[in-house]
Design a protein around this nucleic acid. Structure first.
Lengths: 237, 237
DNA sequence: GCATATTTGTCCGTATGTATA
DNA sequence: CTATACATACGGACAAATATG
């Protein structure tokens, strides 16, 4: 969630209805942005694909104006690319963007974990993510393994207690998932790292922040290498 | 490696563009966003102020639809705050946001300078910024001192060679200038840091990256304290 | 190289729901 | 509680730029 705690009540006309506990998306544009973001990181929309205003606005049953607002949001997040007078396209990740993303990850995650307190609530979320990953691996659900892995690293960033950093990282993570979408069998790629994640977490919980950071740095270097290798094996675009 | 976060270029069709040295603003929305951003960080629009769609679209001579697109962009950058069905307002910086911003600055800038090579072209830009600041101080132009100081730190981030990090930092910097706008005589606040900047640069050029990072960290802690003190002295909002 | 069709960029008018006086 | 003002979202319209034959 890039935005902070924007809790909004539903747009139900029956205002007497108390909190139903479910947050209704505030605006059509916001809701649509979530939908499209899901399709993008889910690989449903392929990189380079053109998104026609007319076609999409018709299929999503919204006006062109509203859709254009959604495009602006996702373009700012790096998921779409806007070419003036030509249209919007799904961003095409490059080797350079992967390198850039991992550079940012090393910088942010390593420093966050190095300075974190073992008592930080984010550590509990890391533990949960590791357990989820292990369980998913046991039943062979590689998609859930990947999802838990993403949660693990988002929790690392959360250790820094910075809303802005969290928002920036979620954006980076979305771009990274766009890269994964280009690879075949991408989830299996970070399955081997579950145990390394557990070791990192053990270090952190034991107060060995420096060692956790060192392990994480090596994790990221190794992971980047794997992704780059898989990426460069792709057919030419 | 010049990898891109959507840099528009390459349309060398020799169009009849008035060469003002800069790329022609591609869209009205883009141009308007730049204008409004300038007014925001220049203090022309005060925090908390409401920006009426109707009034602004009339005064800027654009339609409400176009203006709404601009609002979305600036809201994503943290300069505007959007309250559903109430309108958009200039963001009101809080003590928490200042703390958050400086936390991010320490994390990013310190790591960037610690790992930088003295031969990086960004170092030359840092040198230029220091010289500009010194010259501005000599003639008592505190606004230019502040501007040069911002360039100095943006150049530090540039040492990391990450487009995404640069974009994120420029956003953070814009928010910080919004905070400065609340203070009286804000430029004078970071005038004392010119010499410290020079010392940081000397360390970096001499290959003492670790010491440069340590100095920078102390700079940022000190600067944050000054800003927070000035901020807490402000009249109630 | 030129004419045409398609798509984007921008604007206007309007209906509806929400917040506030 | 009613009334007013305003944000939200829609659909239509035209100009400009691009792509196509």
């Amino acid at each position: 969630m890039p935005e902070g705690a924007t809790v909004q009540q539903g747009d139900d006309k029956g205002r007497a209805a108390p909190d139903n506990g479910e947050a209704v998306p505030v605006s059509v544009a916001q809701r649509l942005a979530d939908v499209l973001r899901g399709r993008l990181i889910g690989g449903e929309l392929r990189p380079g694909e053109k998104l026609s205003e007319a076609a999409l606005s018709a299929s999503l049953d919204v006006s062109r104006n509203t859709l254009r607002e959604v495009f602006r949001l996702l373009t700012k997040e790096g998921l779409l690319r806007h070419e003036p007078h030509r249209g919007v396209f799904v961003s095409t990740p490059s080797l350079g963007s992967i390198i850039d993303i991992y550079r940012v990850r090393r910088m942010i995650e390593c420093r966050a974990i190095a300075e974190a307190s073992p008592a930080h609530p984010g550590v509990a979320r890391m533990r949960l993510a590791v357990e989820d990953a292990v369980a998913a691996r046991r039943r062979g659900d590689w998609r859930d393994v990947g999802s838990a892995n993403m949660r693990f690293h988002a929790s690392i960033v959360d250790l820094a207690d910075s809303d802005r950093l969290n928002g920036f990282y979620s954006q980076i993570a979305a771009e990274l998932r766009l890269c994964f979408g280009l690879l075949d069998d991408p989830e299996r790629l970070h399955a081997p790292y579950i145990d390394l994640n557990a070791a990192i977490l053990d270090d952190l919980e034991a107060g060995r922040g420096a060692q956790a950071a060192a392990r994480l740095e090596s994790y990221l270097v190794q992971s980047e290498r794997t992704i780059l290798a898989a990426f460069s094996r792709l057919p030419r675009t």
